[in-house]
Design a protein around this nucleic acid. Structure first.
Lengths: 252, 252
DNA sequence: CGGATAGTTGAGTTATCTCAAATGCAGTGG
DNA sequence: CCACTGCATTTGAGATAACTCAACTATCCG
């Protein structure tokens, strides 16, 4: 029986090392977890099924371009990235913010171009899985596939919600929902306490994610601050009155 | 070796019968095609792998509700349906129009609730595949899975585009793009000639799909008509000046 | 023929945008 | 340490795309 997982820079079965999945805070939340579980079930490593190379890039660097062919499937390990569609005239729509544990798109194991512009917002560490290996593994191990399908369902729900937000919700609602959403996702990863999170997004990111103008985003955020709903400074954001804020996010 | 496909009302290997996949105009465009190819490769039927029941329902009938549990995966055979998210205050966003050959969602083989409200726009005929059977078939036959993955990629691209449209495009652009999009999809199915298609959508459907008001949709469509871009009457729509219309769809 | 649903049109309102100027803030080189 | 440059944010004023409301007309169906 062969092991299913190997990283270039270490033996995954050794003690946790910096940069290894073993020390990754979030590997529970992604395909890595499934791979890991498979590996544990399979016992000690003899031959790796999946090789992943690790990369760290500075903020603002592009991770992948819309039509760029790549034989790798990137999974974010650390930092924030955005996945965007850009129109030729400069308009942009951010489709999702990628956090630790996220695969750029759950369709990417099957497609060599993403159609998306993926950019680092903060410094980002990510793992590149080789698409062909990953695909083989998915075909061979139904539980991995099941996990990916689950992630696909979640991805689908979240982009569906984005469409509802963009099509049918006011600026206040959109922004409040984005913030609540991010708080939730970070909390699940243990990266938010007391309704407070690191918040590296610039207002233009919020604008591009909500289909608004940076100017308007500034006005809405100022409004939230003035009403004591949130506190927002020093790249850190706190929701001061969760209940009211949730009301803003849903209300008509 | 066992056959992979059987419909309740006929032997799929007999001569084309009304209501059978064999006579379906569009089976090339969906999972049915993959199942069919599998079946042909496998030779004559001895034991069916997939059983599908066929249903026909009148316009406006609900096909599935957001939280309703179902053990079936519906695939549209004929007619138009919509897949919608509805908010409690009555706002609605249509996420896609489903045409012959479309599965409600490519995630549905893996999920027992869709989270979506699926409604017939015209009279609709659809096939219900049993989820558990479909899932088994997918796991056993990589080519089926590959096909589903492809459909999944397309679904992803189209909802991504919807988000861009809703977030970053004007009313004119959104409506023009919707029309061009439908024309394309119907043309692929041989259901549009000379830039003319049957067009059963009510203006409120267009409004819910584009995030606009029915009143505004009416004004934009009248504008298109007045400028000689489209002709639109009797539930039939023709694009009179494709080039200009495409310009409207992209322009800033 | 009557009632319901769908579409049109006009008038007035509003959420969000554009433009522009002012302020703040972070990093760079001298 | 300061001056400088470039980016991010704030704020105000005015413009506009899309909305709401309301009345009217057309179309469909029993």
């Amino acid at each position: 029986m062969s092991a299913l997982l190997k990283y270039e820079e270490h033996n995954p079965y050794g003690s946790p090392a910096s940069g290894s999945c073993t020390s990754c805070d979030v590997y529970e939340f992604n395909i890595c977890a499934a791979i890991r579980k498979r590996s544990e079930a399979a016992g000690q490593a003899t031959e790796p099924l999946l090789v992943a190379s690790v990369h760290t890039i500075p903020a603002r660097r592009t991770i992948s371009r819309p039509t760029e062919w790549s034989e790798f499937v990137p999974v974010i390990c650390r930092g924030w990235a955005s996945s965007t569609i850009a129109l030729s005239d400069g308009r942009r729509q951010i489709l999702s913010f990628l956090l630790a544990g996220d695969m750029v798109s759950t369709a990417s194991p099957f497609e060599s171009t993403s159609g998306l512009l993926v950019e680092a917002i903060t410094e980002v560490t990510y793992r590149n899985f080789k698409r062909s290996d990953l695909k083989t593994a998915l075909f061979e191990h139904p539980d991995l596939l099941e996990m990916l399908a689950k992630a696909w369902g979640e991805e689908r729900r979240s982009i569906d919600q984005l469409a509802v937000d963009l099509g049918r919700r006011t600026a206040d609602e959109r922004i409040a929902r984005l913030i609540l959403n991010l708080m939730d996702r970070l909390a699940k990863r243990g990266m938010a306490q007391d309704q407070t999170m690191d918040f590296p997004l610039r207002q233009h990111h919020i604008a591009d994610a909500t289909g608004l103008t940076p100017v308007h985003v500034s006005k809405v955020l100022s409004g939230f601050r003035r009403s004591g709903l949130i506190d927002y400074s020093n790249r850190s954001l706190a929701i001061l009155d969760v209940a009211s804020f949730q009301r803003v996010a849903n209300q008509r």
